[in-house]
């Protein structure tokens, strides 16, 4: 298995623990008392409308922002204090991040692999994500979907135990989306724990073991996709989501 390591965590310890997390920007409360835990090997989804607090929650998990209240632990560590130690073990793909336009795909993979103590084989990651034929292409010349796939590959090149994927398949065509889903399935089999932020309900339903629906900075509902669907008396997660959001 090129990605991920089998469960290394002691039994009973959650990989991610978010406890009563709050974050405000000036007057605006972005996250207001969010709590959830993600056990090892789970794929956990964060869904909700724009401004619901999904990205802020993810940024606190990655140590890019410090919580104003509550606590976050990832692999037992506080991300706002141990950002760099955690970065060795947590891979992420963020919304709207970029590389220098003149950097080539193969160079980016090789560069990012050099950041980690025990990286995956970057050539293998290139092949795995269908980037091999783009190896000599500059970032500035890539299509939106190709960029997305490269950023995903970069999230995995450090051979992480935890991955955080924000808007995983935005900008991908339907075929590429399905391919990405299949690769996430493989990641799961290799024991990686994942947090997935998505606007696509079919994606969350298909990929996630459990889902938290955020609204106005709070968790409106949480459970397996099947749970949420049956609780809402719906036939799909999308329908359950719309019911919840309109309530």
């Amino acid at each position: 298995m090129p990605y991920g390591k089998p469960h290394r965590h002691p039994w009973g310890m959650a990989t991610i623990e978010v406890n009563a997390l709050t974050k405000t920007y000036g007057e605006m409360v972005a996250v207001d008392g969010v709590s959830f835990t993600v056990p090892p090997g789970e794929i956990f989804g964060l869904i909700g409308p724009n401004g619901a607090g999904k990205t802020t929650t993810v940024e606190c998990i990655l140590g890019l922002r410090s919580p104003d209240g509550g606590s976050v632990r990832v692999l037992g560590l506080d991300p706002s204090r141990k950002r760099r130690a955690l970065a060795q073990r947590v891979g992420a793909q963020l919304q709207e991040s970029a590389l220098p336009d003149r950097m080539k795909v193969g160079e980016a993979m090789r560069l990012f692999a050099a950041f980690y103590a025990r990286p995956a084989d970057w050539r293998q990651v290139l092949r795995r994500w269908g980037l091999e034929h783009l190896r000599g292409k500059a970032f500035g010349d890539l299509s939106g979907g190709q960029r997305q796939r490269l950023l995903l590959g970069l999230a995995l090149v450090g051979d992480p135990e935890v991955v955080v994927l924000d808007e995983l398949t935005t900008g991908l065509d339907p075929v590429a989306r399905r391919e990405t889903w299949a690769l996430i399935g493989e990641l799961k089999e290799s024991g990686v724990t994942a947090v997935l932020v998505s606007h696509f309900m079919d994606e969350a339903e298909h990929l996630c073991d459990r889902v938290a629906m955020l609204r106005g900075g709070r968790i409106a509902a949480m459970g397996t996709p099947a749970d949420l669907i049956s609780r809402a008396g719906a036939t799909s997660l999308e329908e359950a989501y719309l019911t919840e959001v309109e309530r």
Partner: peptide, 8 residues
């Protein structure tokens, strides 16, 4: 921002 989530 992308580099901030690496160990660099």
């Amino acid at each position: 921002r992308r580099l901030a989530i690496t160990p660099v």
